[in-house]
Amino acid sequence: MGILDVKNVNKRFGGLQALGDVNLNVAENSVHAIIGPNGAGKSTLLNCLVGKLIPDTGSVMFDGQSVLGRKPFEINQMGISRVFQTPEIFGDLSVLENMMIPCFAKRDGAFELNAISSVGSQTDIVERAEQMLEEMNMADKRHMHAAALSRGDKRRLEIGMCLSQEPRLLLLDEPTAGMARADTNNTIDLLKQIKEERDITIAIIEHDMHVVFSLAERITVLAQGTPLVEDTPENIKGHPKVREAYLGESA
């Protein structure tokens, strides 16, 4: 029984069966990749996990509790953090402020009317955010406008913001999409380092096979909304069904 347990999930958009009987089990403290060609339903599946979409049928259990019907912020408070395909950060705020917001969310919960004390007087939050920036090697950029960061740094900041909440499950949606090779490799190293240093489960949706095979311990292949195979990277590499899904029957 894994930390994330998806059972018989179906999702239909009009005439399109986006997900058909998806079963997925992510073991605690593993790195699990979900791959598949375009339109395989990877993003739909992810959106069902974080509360953006509600599946038509089936169940999604996180650590023994159902996430279905909960709002994204509630699911986050349960311990699931999500990294988006294009980095979603607070572009108008400074890097330090960006990092402080998840720290507040971790300490105070979903809502706290703290309108009189100044941000600077919340020393525990400031320290925590500074320490997190240190770990992300971004301490020197703390007063920069987050919108002015490079793509790779935005990604790094976003991951740092997710980690500062100490989530039990980190969901990454194509974390290296649109990145240069060097940035991609940096992100891979960062994720490896995170895995080594923390007790955390990582589920990653990825297009880039280089990223998948350097990180994943288990891989699920989705095609046309249904899981084809689930196995270790070594076995997936040569699997005929996978080749078929990616390259077409003639290959």
């Binding site: 974080v50 709002k71 994204p72 912020f73 986050n76 408070q77 953090s81 999500r82 988006f84 979603e88 950060i89 607070f90 917001i101 998840p102 507040f104 969310a105 971790k106 919960g109 979903a110 809502f111 913001m161 909440q165």
Partner: peptide, 10 residues
């Protein structure tokens, strides 16, 4: 969006 996925109820 980021705020919602950071566990805060907007």
């Amino acid at each position: 969006q980021r705020l919602n996925y950071t566990g805060l109820n907007t």
